[in-house]
Nucleic acid binder design. Sequence first.
RNA 1: GCGCCCGUAGCUCAGCUGGAUAGAGCGUUGGCCUCCGGAGCCAAAGGUCAGAGGUUCGAAUCCUCUCGGGCGCGCCA
Length: 585
Amino acid sequence: MRHKLQQRLQEAVDELCSRSLLPADSQPEIKVERTRDPAHGDFATNLALVLAKAAGQRPRDLAEAIIGALPATPDIERVEVAGPGFINFHLAPGAYHQVVEQVLTAGDDYGRSDLGGGRPVQVEFVSANPTGPLHVGHGRGAAYGATVADLLAAVGYRVHREYYVNDAGRQMDILATSVWLRYLELAGETLSFPSNGYQGDYVWDIAATVHRNRGDAWRHPAAEVFADIPADAPEGDKEAHIDALIDRARTLLGAEPYREIFDLALNSILANIRQDLHAFGVDYDEWFSERSLTESGAVQQALDRLQAAGHLYEKNGALWFRSSDFGDEKDRVVVRDNGQTTYFASDIAYHMNKLERGYDRVIDVWGADHHGYVPRVKAALRALGDDPDRLDVLLVQFAILYRGGERVQMSTRSGEFVTLRELRQEVGRDAARFFYVMRKCEQHLDFDLDLAKSQSADNPVYYIQYAHARIASVMNQLAERGLSWDRAEGAAHLHLLHESHETGLMVAISRYPEVVEAAALLHEPHQLAHYLRELANQFHTYYNAHQFLVEEAGLRNARLNLIAAVRQVIANGLGLLGVSAPDSM
RNA sequence: GCGCCCGUAGCUCAGCUGGAUAGAGCGUUGGCCUCCGGAGCCAAAGGUCAGAGGUUCGAAUCCUCUCGGGCGCGCCA
């Protein structure tokens, strides 16, 4: 409807231009908005206010002229000028009746569109280091990224969901070494575990697998392992301590066994992560390995391209990228003085690879603590001659958990973090998914565990699901009374729906496609969450005010058509948020 | 110190990229089941949109400054 009005207005503007009542080049963006106050009609545009200055006319006069040039449309009952020069559209009563039929006919597809025209978009999200289970901090990125991806798919983009697996680098070596040390302990060695090692129980589990597979084959006396290793904190430097242990593990084990432990740790944790995400309703098209970039030579290729373009230089034995030439605040190291490429170097290659794959748009969902990283990645793309605007980095702020009004402390070090799995088990997938996307992503999120768990009025998830279940229940009630829903008869009697609650609901469900569109294009799933709450509220109000199962068959079926459409919209909306729409609760 | 994000009702947050009288939920107070699920509904109270300037027909929204909170500024990933 909104698009239809925009078209009509465009025709009116063209008409006025051709009659020289407007400057020929006046082609403003025509904005048609829903009105906030029903007294202002259903839709309004500020077009006349925007054009007034260029046209040299008073806004209200211009508005009249535009209305005069507007093609007639049966859906519109009347058009009027209001306030300083707004043009308000009042729709004919029948205009909203057709939306009920549209919803029922389209079913699960209602709200979907082909706005994206099948253009390919990539969404990369979570991408947590596979050094341990996902915790609640990752949950928000998972819920947000998955929902943004689903929304984009709903409006017609071909979405590729990707997880970047950081399977190279020091953190993974620390993990592999941690596993080996735990293995030694299982084999009977006594040692003091490094303070910087991974201490979670899952490390013991992986070590146990190693011990089961290999027995004592890879056992070395603790004294040999720790010989000449620099002291751990607090006396010494914990970083130097763990690095020396990594080297020792490689030397004593040899390349092959070390790799076996490394890969076992990597794969078991990755499997765990994949399983967690799947249970959370989050699935990927691709798990992209960082190591593969090094092994395929892609990293070297990226560096060569930067070198050839003259953007690299040597300093203090390291190779630097002159990112400050491209908007970054300072230059960055890409190859360390020990010859190893940095994580950033891999990331340059990775993003180059993404763009080369031909996506229209590449979306990265990152934790807000990585925001300082954005300029350097964009700088690299610019230096490589790519368009950095094809990359959208969406920063997600932290979620803070509350239980009993107290902040839940999370500490990865101690291994006492709350995992995503624990959260799901405690509050359920539906509540978790919903709560995570209830807020704008750049807003800090207070996650109240007690509220998410409570099956009560103040829990928005249950509130919305309850509306859905209530409608299903009405349908059951209908059958119990020996009646059935006649959709055709309902469709023929939609004109009987003239209660304010009814027109309100029809307006609401007609808005749904616009909400999905906005939520998708602006990457703001919270808009959909809020919309669904409002829709549920309108339904509950209607439910309390009017009886659906009335004697008169025409009215009864018309109302059933309406609430069936509401149920459909709630189900579609919750589906996009990864939340179930149960028939009974 | 520099950079990014945030500041709206007692609390948690919306506010549709500059529109008309700033809205919800929770909490508080008072009402509503012989009726389709009370996990619901209705009503009331509650605001200097952190503060000060500016831009214009019009600002919670855009610009500048100040104050307050979060995060980031590695040859870590």
